[in-house]
Design a protein around this nucleic acid. Structure first.
Ligand code: FES
Ligand code: FES
Lengths: 162, 162
DNA sequence: ACAAATCCTAGCTGTCCAGTCGGAAAACCG
DNA sequence: CGGTTTTCCGACTGGACAGCTAGGATTTGT
């Protein structure tokens, strides 16, 4: 059980955009060309194009076309929940094929739709689903950006000789 | 992102074994033929054979060969954590390909192994992983069995005429 | 001996991930 | 203007893996 690289790459992309924007309001930040982040993160450019398209459709990034164009965050990093990012890339997050969350948090599973019998495993998948969404929804892009900046800062320190 | 049907079917199988055992100690319970649970849960028998093999290797069920043979739980349902069940079926649970949990809970990811740079997304996947494992480890088979029994009981009530 | 069951290995079919490719449209620059 | 840089869009592919199925060998009750 794992997320695909769509999520991995897409999250990287968002973090990179967040880092370049820094503290400036997203509207004023310079758009970043996709080739730049592809080089920085060592990811295939042509693949990133597909991912960023989904992020744009979800209104998480905005684009500027033409020369000197690129992408920037559509809203400040603190207001972007990673749940939205991941769902934009991978579709609705559910632990099982048969598991569909209704709008009001009500859970449906195939066995119940069929109506024949109560589903024994629903309790388990509901808990798992809750754990994942809670972790995802409770993490903002800003947190990851800070985390990445902090890691880069310590890495940039002159290596003490052993 | 989802678990495969291996987990779904396997959990069903375990619940079924737990229900048939009832409150009797697992050693004394009659072994249940796989064909029985296949019929009860409408699952392909030949596929279940593969799944139960993994559960047996993980010492979650024990088998009795020959006529009147079958499977039973290897220990009381209350002592079986669903995390073990799922991991036996799907392998180690990790949200990403690049994400490996060391024995002491330490987390390694490919970027760090390469040593070149700190991984920006590790924070996120660590939280997700924690959410999933917490949900899975905190749920025992006994809980699911009780849940299933309760649901079956209400369903068995005579349907009030509309 | 026979039947009922577990056990084991192999293979098959579709789906989807990960990535490539080619080219169109849009905007800037001289 | 024309050329360059970029986003944008669709189609295509190669491989991996999920989800079975088939066939048989082995063990054990009656
Ligand atoms: S049918 Fe899978 S959770 Fe109910
Ligand atoms: S490389 Fe994926 S979590 Fe670090």
């Amino acid at each position: 059980m794992l997320f695909s690289t769509k999520a991995e790459y897409g999250v990287r992309l968002m973090v990179e955009l967040g880092r370049r924007a820094g503290t400036t309001a997203p509207e004023e930040a310079e758009p970043v060309a996709l080739a730049t982040v592809a080089e920085a993160e060592l990811l295939p450019l042509s693949y990133l194009e597909h991912l960023v398209a989904k992020l744009r459709q979800a209104d998480l990034v905005s684009s500027v076309r033409g020369a000197h164009g690129g992408y920037r965050l559509a809203k400040p990093a603190r207001e972007i929940a990673m749940l939205d990012v991941v769902e934009a890339l991978e579709g609705p997050v559910a632990p099982m094929e048969c598991f569909h969350t209704e709008r009001e948090g009500r859970v449906l599973c195939s066995h119940e739709v069929d109506g024949d019998r109560a589903c024994a495993t629903k309790l388990l998948w509901t808990r798992v689903h809750g754990g994942v969404t809670k972790a995802l929804a409770g993490t903002s892009l800003a947190e990851l950006v800070e985390f990445a900046d902090a890691a880069a800062a310590t890495a940039a320190l002159p290596e003490p000789v052993a």
